[in-house]
Simulated scan of single mutants.
Amino acid sequence: MGGTGAAADVAGAAEADDGADPALPASFGHDFERQVDALLEARPPVFSFVMGISPGNVLAEARQRGIVTLGAATTVDEAVALDEAGVDAVQIGTGFLVTDESGASPAHKQALRGPQARVTMLTSAFSGRQARTIANRFVRDLARYEGDLPPYPLQGALTEPIRRAAVERGLPDCLNLWVGQAAPLTRPRTAQGYLAALVEETRPRV
């Protein structure tokens, strides 16, 4: 199936969801290299990233330009890997999604607490840009079209009605269940309790 066919399938599903054509973005994002160039030229005070570790040359150039780098981790091991890569600080991602104070949808929290959180995959099905999600019906059905899907942010605009309806109706099989690689290690608790546990686990390693 060609790119237009895959796009038509997704657009048709979005239209059927609420009876209206999906709103397309006025402009489209740049590729990673151009985004990095723009970031380094702008020299923001802080550069944060998620879902992996930015390339070493990017981190090194950011440091040379006085930009503080922040990476996302869920476990102490991930934080150690980021520290060894040379980031200035570590921020917490997936671990806070299941906390009492999290704004994640109930369906997202339930998926994180269930056995399905053990199976994650990289997909561009929801946004057109690869990200890690708990494997569900939506990403599995579109996996064979990965090479044909529209790029970010067009794919995100096409699937937005589906994702919105999935949240409203509590349908995890059609929801973008973003996670890190340590999703199975998360568990329900307060944000304060989670942070306290991380501090205790980190003490022997600092």
Rank of each mutant, 00 (worst) to 15 (best):
T159N: 02
K109G: 05
A111K: 03
V76L: 15
G93C: 04
E78S: 08
E84F: 01
V167H: 11
G180K: 00
R205G: 00
E146T: 09
G5K: 04
R132V: 01
F49T: 01
C174Q: 13
R34G: 07
D141V: 01
A81D: 15
V10L: 02
A183D: 05
A73R: 09
L39Y: 04
V139G: 07
V68N: 01
I53M: 01
A125C: 11
V36C: 12
P153H: 11
V46T: 04
S102N: 13
P44S: 13
M1P: 07
L112I: 04
V68Y: 09
D88Y: 06
A7N: 06
F28M: 08
F49I: 00
L175A: 09
P172T: 06
Y152K: 03
A7H: 04
F32A: 14
A117P: 01
G5H: 06
G114D: 15
R140Y: 04
F96R: 09
D77V: 02
D37T: 10
Y145H: 14
V90G: 04
E160L: 10
R137A: 15
P55Y: 03
G93W: 01
A6S: 15
Q130L: 09
S127D: 13
E146F: 00
P55M: 07
A72Y: 02
L40I: 09
F32N: 03
Y145C: 05
P151N: 06
A182P: 06
G66F: 03
Q155I: 03
F126G: 05
G2L: 02
V50I: 06
G3Y: 02
Q155T: 12
V206I: 12
Q64N: 13
A79F: 06
G12E: 05
G156M: 06
F138I: 00
A81W: 05
D173M: 02
F49V: 03
R43V: 10
H30G: 02
G170T: 05
D18T: 10
V76G: 11
L39D: 00
Y194T: 02
F138P: 00
E84R: 12
L97T: 12
A107I: 11
A13M: 14
R169T: 13
G71N: 07
A143H: 07
Q116K: 14
L185A: 14
G5I: 06
I67L: 09
V36S: 01
R163E: 12
W178C: 01
R169V: 08
A107N: 10
E84D: 09
F28E: 13
R129G: 11
G103N: 09
R169N: 15
I134S: 07
N136Q: 10
S48Y: 05
R203W: 11
D21I: 03
E84A: 11
L97M: 12
R163W: 06
P204M: 12
F96W: 14
A38K: 05
G93P: 00
D37N: 11
W178K: 00
E168G: 08
H108Q: 09
Q155W: 06
D88L: 03
Q181G: 15
M121F: 02
V46E: 02
A13C: 02
G103D: 15
D148Y: 08
Q181R: 12
L185C: 08
L158I: 03
E201A: 14
T123S: 15
D88S: 08
A125S: 15
D148M: 04
Y145I: 00
R187G: 14
G103W: 10
D77C: 00
G147V: 02
S27N: 11
V167D: 08
D83F: 05
G71F: 06
E15R: 14
